[in-house]
């Protein structure tokens, strides 16, 4: 089965990122395909590599990056939501005259159409949010 997931809350405030991650791991373990993970609203904060949690806590951002590498996942941050919240890739940083970028490895920034496409192309779409 082909799944896509939308994550609507930021890490560390709400359990949504953790729930989405655990669901996706379980789906992959059961042999299912993950078409796309789309981060929206404060969910885009899952994709900043500047995140520095204490050593004894889980690193939610790195955990996504590692899962993406391991399973070739498509992690997409909504561009409009990301810009509002200061998450930029090198291209966006240049375009908007910012002095740096902060997107984490394995993530890419793209438009809301990617969410609609995920709905069209997947057998199931789940939303993890508040």
């Amino acid at each position: 089965m082909k799944f896509s997931v939308m994550v609507s809350e930021g890490p560390y405030t709400h359990q949504a990122s953790d729930s989405a991650y655990q669901f996706i791991r379980a789906a992959l373990a059961a042999g299912h395909e993950i078409f796309r993970i789309f981060f929206y609203h404060d969910g885009v904060n899952n994709g900043t590599r500047l995140t520095t949690p204490p050593q004894d806590d889980r690193h939610i951002v790195n955990r996504w990056s590692e899962l993406a590498t391991e399973h070739e996942l498509d992690l997409v941050l909504c561009v409009a939501a990301a810009q509002r919240r200061g998450i930029v890739d090198p291209d966006e940083a240049k375009r908007n005259g910012k002095d740096g970028d902060n997107i984490a490895p394995g993530f890419r920034i793209s438009g809301l159409g990617q969410l609609i496409e995920a709905g069209i192309e997947s057998d199931r779409l789940l939303v993890f949010g508040d």
């Binding site: 089965m1 799944f3 655990q22 669901f23 791991r25 379980a26 789906a27 373990a29 059961a30 299912h32 199931r124 789940l126």
Partner: peptide, 10 residues
């Protein structure tokens, strides 16, 4: 468990 969650979603 999460595996049951996935099964329900399927």
């Amino acid at each position: 468990g999460y595996d049951g969650f996935v099964e329900l979603a399927c």
